[in-house]
Design a protein around this nucleic acid. Structure first.
Lengths: 137, 137
DNA sequence: TATAATATTAGGAATTATTCCTATTATTGA
DNA sequence: TCAATAATAGGAATAATTCCTAATATTATA
C-alpha cells in the first residue's frame, strides 16, 4: 500500500518542470535545497517507484548513469555523441513497430525502447570541434 | 596503432561462436580455460575496443550487466521480461527509422538502438508462472 | 636477426552507480 | 488518539566497470 511522502512529491514536481533528463545525483542535489537531510537512497527508491507506477520514465543510455524524465507523453530520446546531452524527440510512423517486430517471432512483443544517436542541433552547428558544455545539472 | 593480441583474438572468436549474448563475466570465465591468467580488466578492455571498431556489438539492456554480441549482421534484440534472456530479432521495415527521426530535428541522426520487450517464445508457451532458467553462461 | 618503440597484459586497487539494512519518523485508517 | 505500517536518513554493502603500474608481447626497422 502506497503512502504519501513529501519527498516523493517534491521529486515528482521537480522532474515535471525539467526537460533535461537529470540523473539521480542531480535530482538529489536539487531536492536537498528543500530537504537538506534527504538521502540518495530515498531519491533512488522514489525514482524507481515513480517509474514503476508510470509517473516518470527511466532512461538507460548505456553510457553513464541512468536519467529520468517527467514527460510521459509518448516520445523518443536523442543522445548527442558529441556533448552527451539527452533531448526529447517525437518520431511519427513508429506506431506499429511492435507488430513489425512480432513477425516471425514465437513470443509476445509488448513494448520497446529506442535511442537515437548523432549530433544535437547545437553541436551540428558549431564550427569548432570542442563539445559544448553538457547541460546536465 | 593497434597491435595483435592472442587474448583479443580469442575473445572475438569466442563471441563469433555464441548466440546467447554473454556478459563480460561469462566471457572471462570461458576465456580463462585457454588463458588461465587473463584478467577481467583485459576482457573489458578488449570487449570495449572490439565494440568501438565495429567487430562486436555491446548491448546495454538497462537491467544487469552489459552483454556482447559477435553477430554483426543487422538485427535487433528482444529481452524477455520473464526470464531475462536476450534473443536476436530481425525486424524489417525499420530501414528508414533514422530519417523518420530526423524530421523536425535540427541536428543529425546518425544511428539508433532499439530493444524490444515482452515474453520470449519459451515463456509465452509455459503454463506455469515460474520463469524458465535463464540461458546466460 | 637484433633492437627499440610501444601496445598489451596481469593483478589488483579504485571508482561509479546503485541497492540494501536498520532504527527512527511520518502517514493513514480505525 | 492510537496502532499499523510505509517511508525515511544515514551509511554500509554490492555490482559493474575502469584505472594504475610494472612486466611482457608485438611490430617496425636497422
Amino acid at each position: 500500500m502506497l503512502k504519501y511522502s513529501r519527498q516523493r512529491e517534491s521529486i515528482q514536481n521537480f522532474l515535471a518542470n525539467r526537460y533535461d533528463h537529470p540523473t539521480a545525483e542531480t535530482v538529489y542535489q536539487n531536492i536537498r535545497e528543500e530537504f537538506p537531510n534527504i538521502s540518495l537512497g530515498t531519491v533512488y527508491r522514489n525514482l524507481n517507484l515513480l517509474a514503476e507506477i508510470g509517473e516518470i520514465q527511466k532512461i538507460s543510455t548505456g553510457a553513464g548513469p541512468d536519467r529520468f524524465d517527467g514527460n510521459m507523453h509518448p516520445h523518443y530520446h536523442f543522445i548527442c555523441n558529441h556533448c552527451g546531452c539527452v533531448m526529447d524527440l517525437s518520431v511519427s510512423g513508429l506506431e506499429h513497430i511492435n507488430i513489425l517486430a512480432s513477425q516471425n517471432f514465437g513470443g509476445a512483443v509488448e513494448g520497446h525502447v529506442a535511442y537515437f544517436y548523432g549530433k544535437c542541433p547545437t553541436c551540428a552547428e558549431d564550427k569548432i570541434s570542442l563539445p559544448h558544455t553538457q547541460k546536465t545539472s
